[in-house]
């Protein structure tokens, strides 16, 4: 029997919000001279939010292709760090993993990790990943067609939507001490790094906050043989 899952609501809402941001990407890329086919292919294959704004922005401001791709890949690099987190929720076959890889993104990772068992984690990953991907593509195409019809999206506070989504995704993890240490440490590192490093680098550097957070988690485990305090069940080791 098919019942609505609790991750459906957040998954659909995030996808719609990302779709609206996709519209602004379409408008932006259209203004920068990309044609519809290029915008659609870029959103379909790369599906990489901020990195797509960066690649188009760098080219539009006269940068080289290498600089544009390099800057964008720095923003995309963090997806490699979501892999270890979502692996346990993915199919064990190689073709299955190669398909799943396309849907590894911030939101699908967050929704998978938030589930309490492997089956729901897997469902949340695929549902969020595919829905968000489709909405991002659709939004980009609609934005291209609209061109400059919509006004300044910042007037509607759209630039606060994405960080607010991450605040909502982060909130449950702040109820544990290791989660708070990880989040606070990462925020401090990111603030310190922003003025001195290229876009994307502060996010990658923030993983050093894992060390103190892991220390806190290990110390709080009374008995080391008591099993992990992970929020998700340990997946099968492939």
């Amino acid at each position: 029997m098919i019942r609505p899952k609790h991750y459906w609501r957040d998954g659909v809402f995030m996808s719609l919000a990302v779709g609206v941001i996709g519209v602004t990407f379409g408008v932006f890329a259209d203004a920068a001279g990309l044609d519809l086919a290029q915008i659609a292919v870029l959103s379909t294959l790369a599906c990489a939010g901020a990195a797509q704004f960066v690649v188009v922005g760098v080219i539009d401001s006269g940068g080289t292709g290498a600089a544009a791709v390099g800057s964008a890949l720095l923003l995309i690099a963090r997806y490699a760090l979501y892999g270890p987190v979502v692996r346990r929720f993915l199919p064990s076959s190689v073709p299955g993993r190669l398909v799943a890889a396309q849907f590894v993104i911030d939101q699908s990772t967050a929704m998978a990790v938030a589930q309490t068992n492997r089956r729901d984690g897997s469902g949340a990953f695929w549902f969020t990943g595919v829905t968000l991907w489709l909405c991002w593509i659709a939004g980009s195409v609609v934005g291209t067609a609209l061109g400059g019809v919509i006004g300044d999206p910042e007037k509607w506070g759209l630039d606060a939507a994405l960080p607010a989504i991450f605040v909502a995704l982060l909130a449950p993890h702040l109820r544990s001490a290791p989660g708070r240490v990880a989040a606070l440490g990462a925020a401090v590192v990111a603030v310190a790094a922003v003025p001195f490093t290229a876009a994307g680098v502060p996010i990658l550097l923030s993983v050093v906050a894992l060390a103190p957070a892991a220390l806190v988690q290990v110390r709080r485990q009374q008995d080391p043989h008591d099993g992990p305090t992970s929020r998700t069940e340990p997946g099968p080791t492939p």
Binding site: V113, A160, L162, H173, A182, A186, I203, L205, A213, Q217
Partner: peptide
């Protein structure tokens, strides 16, 4: 067992950068 902390650090940094 601390792998779940990885997205916590990345999301927190994303909030900071985007804000």
């Amino acid at each position: 067992a601390v792998v779940w902390l990885l997205p916590v650090t990345l999301f927190s940094a994303l909030v900071v950068v985007m804000t």
